[in-house]
């Protein structure tokens, strides 16, 4: 079954690129600059993995991650943090994320990580 990946990033060009890259790699993609909708989704519609930008303008990606990981419904959804900030790589575990990738990245590295967490 096609895996469903949601991308949360406030930059449109990054959303576009993720869309093209992940669709090409055979995933279903939904992109958004706002993560709030995730908390309202019924269990059935939850994605198989979330790519979450660390520094979303307005809301901190780390806080969103903490929230999703603390809720029973969303707890199991794997979250890979994405950031242009090197130092974020040292602290992703603190707020419950499963993994971390730094911008810019190699496509294969990203796809390997996604595969690992979607158990393909």
């Amino acid at each position: 079954m096609t895996k469903n990946i949601h991308v949360i990033d406030d930059d449109e060009s990054i959303q576009d690129a993720f869309n093209v890259l992940l669709t090409t790699a055979g995933y279903k993609v939904r992109t958004s600059s706002d993560a709030n909708y995730l908390q309202k989704l019924p269990k059935k519609k939850l994605p198989d993995l979330i790519l979450l930008d660390v520094l979303l303008s307005g809301s901190d990606g780390r806080e969103i991650c903490k929230k999703l990981k603390s809720r029973k419904v969303t707890h199991h959804v794997p979250i890979i943090m994405v950031s242009a900030n090197m130092s974020a790589g040292n602290s992703f575990k603190e707020y419950g994320a499963d993994d971390y990738i730094e911008k810019p990245f190699e496509m294969d590295e990203l796809l390997d990580k996604i595969k690992k967490y979607t158990k393909e």
Binding site: D11, S13, I14, A17, A84, K103
Partner: peptide, 8 residues
């Protein structure tokens, strides 16, 4: 940011 998207 733009380098990331160009690279992708």
């Amino acid at each position: 940011t733009p380098v990331t998207s160009v690279k992708m």
